[in-house]
């Protein structure tokens, strides 16, 4: 087997019904992985931008980009080499945890406390996906009640 590598692919698609299913069907039908997928409209255009984090051998990644290109509503496919990549995470903690510690950690990962209620606090961080991984590992000891990650977005440098 050829080595499997993590890859980030951006896809520009026409904003129309079922375009997302076309893309996810392609991945599941051909047995490709999706680690994360984000999608949002591109401002002032009829297009949307998807960021897909996937993994596969060089040959598989090449097939993925070619197969994506074949879909009729796909305008462009970028397989990123040199990119800036960010991901956001929201984490809910019991208010009984050490809030000062948590706030300090958040700051180190480009984040802050975004909501405080009687029993819980919610924090956000926004950083490279690898660093978000790290953050989530570290805060584990503060008994997070819920974690949500946004999936990565990326831009070519």
């Amino acid at each position: 087997m050829e080595a499997s590598e993590r890859r980030v692919i951006s896809v520009i698609v026409v904003n129309e019904a079922s375009v997302l299913s076309r893309i996810t069907d392609l991945f599941s039908g051909r047995g490709y992985n999706i680690t994360s997928l984000t999608v949002a409209p591109i401002p002032d255009s009829k297009y949307s931008r998807l960021t897909i984090v996937t993994s596969g051998s060089v040959r598989v990644i090449e097939q993925i980009t070619k197969q994506l290109h074949k879909l009729i509503p796909v305008l462009k496919v970028y397989e990123h080499a040199d990119l800036v990549e960010k991901e956001m995470a929201l984490v809910k903690f019991p208010a009984s945890e050490n809030i000062t510690d948590i706030a300090t950690l958040c700051a180190a990962y480009n984040g802050k406390i975004v909501n405080v209620a009687e029993n819980i606090i919610i924090v956000m961080v926004a950083d490279e996906p690898k660093r978000v991984d790290n953050f989530l590992k570290i805060i584990n000891k503060y008994n997070p009640k819920e974690i949500v990650r946004s999936g990565a977005v990326a831009l070519e440098r």
Binding site: A17, S18, S21, R22, D25, G29, I72
Partner: peptide, 16 residues
């Protein structure tokens, strides 16, 4: 129907 035919057609449309 378009859900079923998506993976066995070059393209498909549901006309609204």
């Amino acid at each position: 129907a378009v859900g079923i035919s998506r993976s066995c057609t070059k393209h498909n449309y549901l006309v609204t």
